[in-house]
Amino acid sequence: MLALSAGYYWMAVAIPRSQLADAVGPQGLPRVYALLLGVLSLTMIVKSFRRRAQVPSVAATPPPVPGRESAGAGPRFPLWRVAGMLAIGILYILVAPWLGYLLSIAVLLLATTYYQGGAINRQVVLVSLSGGVLFWLLFVVLMRVRQPPGWWLPLS
């Protein structure tokens, strides 16, 4: 957070000045926010050092996700699993302009279902494809909302 506040302050100072600017200017409040965040970050650092000095064993333990402390043993690599979910989303962003909405959303449904513990079988494939069609009908046909067009089928 301290690094973030320093970086944000540096960028705020670099905002170009304008002849139309008022007394506060476009840099004014961002600089105040950065300084406040810096002060609060330092406060947190001091607090955590104090706490560590009082209870060394607690400070060494990484904090669990809130509300899930007593849920039992988790997956072996939770961060990798999180990264996998993010990767599915990023993959959607990359393939949607090429495959188009209907197919991309079906792929996203299939990949996420499989990733969350579903098997790859006829039922999952059928649900994913039906889901793709359902989303297309809902957003594109009924709501008339634009979705990625794709190059193979004009279904946006």
């Binding site: 039992g72 988790g74 997956p75 961060l79 999180v82 969350q116 513990g117």
Partner: peptide
Amino acid sequence: LLAQTGEPGCEK
């Protein structure tokens, strides 16, 4: 979604 992915028993 990410928190539930990383939480115990997410396959259930």
